[in-house]
Each structure stands twice: as structure tokens, then as C-alpha cells.
Amino acid sequence: MPSSVVNLTVNGREQEFLARPAESLLTSLRDRLGLMAAKRGCAQGSCGTCTVLVDDKPVMSCLVAVETIEAAEVRTLEGVADGERLDEVQQAFLDGFATQCGFCTAGMIMTAEALLAENPDPTHDEVVEAISGNVCRCTGYRAIVAAILDAAGRRK
């Protein structure tokens, strides 16, 4: 099968590139567009480290065939900060030290962005539910949940 031309808007910028058949969005982001924030953890949709937003919805980019989302709007962690200025979620993760090795952080922040966009004032349990698809093996999760709640407070 031939490669196909895919058009996406990634972090506000139009991108046009060739993708192999069934190439994952994650592969396109990392290997073609050089956006390395989304991590390749398990490559089978169970760890959440590759989470990005597609048309504002959080998806595991390792499971999305990029040719199926032609013309979609994609947002990755690289598109969250305003230049050098971190957004509320990033700042809350930094201030609350909600990261240790950092491998899950990009996915956690994108999941949090999606949650807060839809539900600006989540409860503790709603935060827990939102990040249930994102695995962290360092922090024990507590600092992450606290940081997301903190970010919600900062946005008010």
C-alpha cells in the first residue's frame, strides 16, 4: 500500500506530510514532526504516556492511525505553554513537584488539560477518574491529583 498525504493542524500550525499505511499519530508526531513530548511507553494503549488532544479530546496517540484523522486539530504538550510562560497546569505540576522521572508527565498534563477544559471545577474523584488511564510508577499519584486540583483553582 502506498503512503498517503496527511494534513493536520498541530499546535496551531498547518502540517502536511507523508504517512505510511496505518502509521500511528504518535509516530507521526515523534518521527516526522519532531515533537517528542508524547512518549512511546507501551505502544498498545495501556499506559497513557502518549496522550495528546485531537479536536480537544484526549486520545492515546499510539492507537490512532493518523490517516483517519485528516484535517484534525492536534495539541501536544509542546503547544501548551505560551512561549516561555507555562500554563496553569504546568505551573501547578512544577510548584507541586508532581513529577519524578518525568516519563508520564506529558500524558498526565494533556489528560488534565482535557479534563479542565470540559470540567473547570472537578472533584478529587473526577480527577482520579480522568487520569485512570495514565500510569505513573514514581510518584504514587497523590502529588499529581493535588496539582490538577491546584491548577483548577488557579484558573478560577
Partner: peptide, 16 residues
């Protein structure tokens, strides 16, 4: 495999 290997998730955390 390790994706089915059970470990506590965010809903299982204790107050520390």
C-alpha cells in the same frame, strides 16, 4: 505482560 500486571492506580492511593 506488564500491561496486565496489577499495580495500584490513582483511585487506590492512601493518604500519606
Amino acid at each position: 505482560d506488564f500491561t496486565e500486571y496489577l499495580m495500584p492506580g490513582p483511585a487506590d492511593i492512601a493518604r500519606q
